[in-house]
Design a protein around this nucleic acid. Structure first.
Lengths: 252, 252
DNA sequence: GAGTGTCGTTGCATCATGTGCAACAGTCAT
DNA sequence: ATGACTGTTGCACATGATGCAACGACACTC
């Protein structure tokens, strides 16, 4: 809507791929060098862009600070985290927490099977939306026309032979997930990895986040993983209750 | 420099404090509502801003994805290298750069001394973890339980009479290093070689890499080597600043 | 050491673009 | 219904963003 801002913001994903010099930025934007320079300077003043010794530009620290604050404002994450850790201690597998936002599903927390969470490790990465259990849970909660619209728009990469192949199959899968209240991904993303997931709901019943447990075949079979389903659902429900304020609320 | 972009970017830190509605944003920016609306729309299209159910705006998850992608492409080695070369030109000794990964400390860069004394170290090779200055720096930054777990698991080969002999001594050494912010290895790996090292930190303060200067006794004594400490620490700090994208000095 | 290429930077004239205004539409409370 | 509040739209105006061309700095070649 605003051309100038639009151009300036387009620089960010461009630099996210790696440092670039003025000429490259101008070319990729399709504008004159002097224009690109002014945009970069403005971004620089706000700390979103940093200029290294070789004069190339890359994303600046301010962006990381903002991202940090953005995620801290997602209070689902804060509430869920301790429960995810607890679940990890009980089952030993990797736990993910994801939200849906603007046609994307993003991981916002992760508890590694062996190591403590590292900020910026893989959190923030878009999810394989057509196959991941958490994505199915989040999309299944949308209205029917929304689901249809998104399903039509997506690509259906065949990560494995068990990946969901097309919009029709995806919509049927979402209907199943919506009905049963939990979801799986059995080797649909990586052949040897299975996931089971459950939704986290707000006070109005809407799904605000989804969590999943992932484990490789070599550790537990899909059948064994499914025996954890009650535990996963119970954890999700506990988080839902706390999130919707059934427990004493302290924040303003 | 660019008014429009400047205003748009000013919205981000504003929203970082918490969600705000159109009127609040317009007021804080000192512009008309319609102007604020257009800016917010542009930010929205780029996913930097998200509109929640109550129509208020907050920071979007795309910020997260951007920061994530940028960090993955951040290469400490690339940023550090020129500084290491410069340091080598100033002091003439061998410089090492190392990172910690998966219970191992690895050399990822090396600038050879200008005198013909070869050290047995190679880029990509694991470091003598119990004695090397860089290893001490990297391990000292872990949490207390992590340090303890690793210390218990390690072997303590007596390369020389001054090698660290056991887990207890190692943990005490790590505590000292953690406290003082630099480390040494005085003949602990090879009898005739001394090292001093300093940590390189990311934006969040975590140690992401460590660098060291090594020199044999026949060239400089340990005392003489230690006089280089301020220079080494300054270099490490410079690299830290550049790595975390903080501009040294800027506008008021 | 003159020549040639590349790159970032600056000042400026032009007009596209962002701006504020005022009117409109939707929602909620009374 | 009425009023107060919010977000939204269309439009005339001039501000501010744009591309150009010229300049300076640096690296490299011959």
């Amino acid at each position: 809507m605003s051309q100038t801002v639009d151009r300036a913001l387009s620089i960010l994903p461009l630099l996210a791929q790696g440092p670039a010099d003025l000429g490259q930025v101008a070319e990729r934007l399709g504008v004159h060098k002097s224009t690109a320079l002014r945009l970069l300077r403005t971004l620089h003043e706000h700390g979103l862009v940093y200029r290294q010794q070789d004069q190339r530009y890359r994303l600046g620290a301010r962006l990381f600070a903002l991202a940090q604050e953005a995620v801290e404002n997602l209070d689902v994450r804060e509430i869920a985290h301790s429960h995810l850790v607890e679940l990890n201690e009980q089952c030993g597998h990797t736990i993910h927490l994801a939200v849906y936002e603007e046609n994307e599903v993003l991981y916002i927390d992760k508890v590694e099977s062996r190591y403590p969470v590292r900020m910026y490790s893989r959190i923030g990465k878009p999810v394989a939306i057509t196959v991941a259990a958490v994505a199915k849970l989040l999309l299944a909660d949308l209205t029917e026309p929304e689901r249809r619209a998104i399903a039509e728009r997506l690509d259906y990469p065949m990560y494995t032979s068990r990946s969901i192949p097309n919009a029709g199959a995806f919509l049927r899968e979402l209907a199943v997930v919506r009905e049963q209240g939990w979801a799986t991904d059995l080797g649909g993303h990586e052949e040897s990895i299975n996931c089971i997931g459950a939704p986290i709901r707000g006070a109005d019943g809407r799904v605000v986040a989804a969590m999943s447990v992932s484990a490789p075949n070599v550790v537990v079979t899909a059948e064994e993983l499914l025996t954890l389903l009650p535990l996963v659902r119970r954890t999700a429900d506990t988080i839902s209750r706390e999130y919707s304020g059934t427990t004493p609320v302290k924040k303003a």
